[in-house]
């Protein structure tokens, strides 16, 4: 990949990103909005029951009324795992969201089941294997680290981003969510914005490499999801990062 003929061009494009302020798209549909679909019948039934309970509760509480639809078709009962409880009457125990919806991410956080076709394997041509699930593929590498207080992509990640861009371009139905992260120091919301800037750097890099807006979304998890738990620079430098997640992972 280092010998890819487009490398000089992409190097130039990436260099432009250091001060980057390219446009990000204003499309209003999240690429993750269909993430949680009940595949397990028991979970589905439970989710349905909880959804019904939620609807009854919503009926009772007139003020909650209409769902504000930012994302077409998204319902509050959709993505699992969050439970809520009424404060005034705790014994009523209103659970709004599905308590045990299907987990989207693999149990170990590294979803690598070879059987689950995501639509990537089809276009395996000559050159590097472009399959995000194949451990032999460069696409298995998803993490991009950043310097302190910086969203600039280091040179060492060029070939990695080129590989992901190539895969996304040739696999039109593949979608990736780009998650930015920050270290733990300072305000959580400010760190969320810093992480956003990092994911946007990756977004712009992929965009300039020809990946359409519709296939990628830049988001931030701020300081909330460290990979290293320590409270020193060794941990912090691991946590200042962006991660590429493919849809369904």
């Amino acid at each position: 990949m280092k010998s890819t003929p487009i490398a000089p061009l992409t190097a130039l494009l990436l260099a432009l990103l250091v001060t980057g302020c390219a446009q990000t798209p204003s499309q209003e549909a999240s690429i993750e909005d269909r993430a949680a679909k009940a595949t397990d019948p028991v979970a589905a039934e439970k989710a349905a029951a909880e959804k019904a309970a939620a609807e009854a509760a919503a009926q009772a509480a007139k003020s909650a009324s209409a769902e504000v639809g930012n994302t077409a078709g998204a319902t509050p009962a959709d993505p699992g795992k969050v439970t809520t409880q009424a404060l005034a009457a705790p014994e009523a125990e209103v659970k709004t969201l599905g308590g045990s919806g299907p987990v989207v991410l693999g149990p170990d956080g590294k979803p690598l089941p070879s059987g689950a076709a995501a639509g990537g394997a089809g276009a395996a041509a000559a050159g590097p294997i472009l399959d995000p699930k194949n451990p032999a593929s460069p696409l298995i590498q998803r993490r991009i680290l950043f310097d302190y207080d910086s969203a600039a992509i280091r040179d060492e990640y060029r070939s990695l981003l080129e590989a992901h861009a190539q895969y996304l371009k040739q696999t039109k139905d593949a979608k990736a969510i780009l998650q930015g992260h920050a270290d733990e120091r300072g305000s959580r919301e400010y760190n969320l914005a810093l992480g956003q800037r990092r994911s946007e750097s990756v977004y712009k890099a992929l965009n300039l490499l020809g990946v359409p807006d519709a296939q990628i979304e830049a988001v931030s998890l701020g300081e909330e999801k460290p990979v290293a738990e320590g409270h020193d620079e060794d941990a912090w430098k691991q946590n200042r990062r962006a991660e590429i997640l493919y849809q369904g992972e």
Binding site: S30, E32, D33, A35, A36, A54, A57, A58, A60, A61, S63, A64, E67, V68, N70, T71, A74, P76, P79, G80, K81, V82, T84, Q85, A86, L87, A88, A92, E93, V94, K95, T96, L97, V104, L105, I177, Q179, L192, E217, V219, S220, L221, G222, E224, K225, L245
Partner: peptide, 20 residues
Amino acid sequence: FEDKKPVVYVQNLADGSRRA
């Protein structure tokens, strides 16, 4: 962050109902 990205919710404390 239940949807792999930050989403703002408003929850009614009286009955626990909430919406994005």
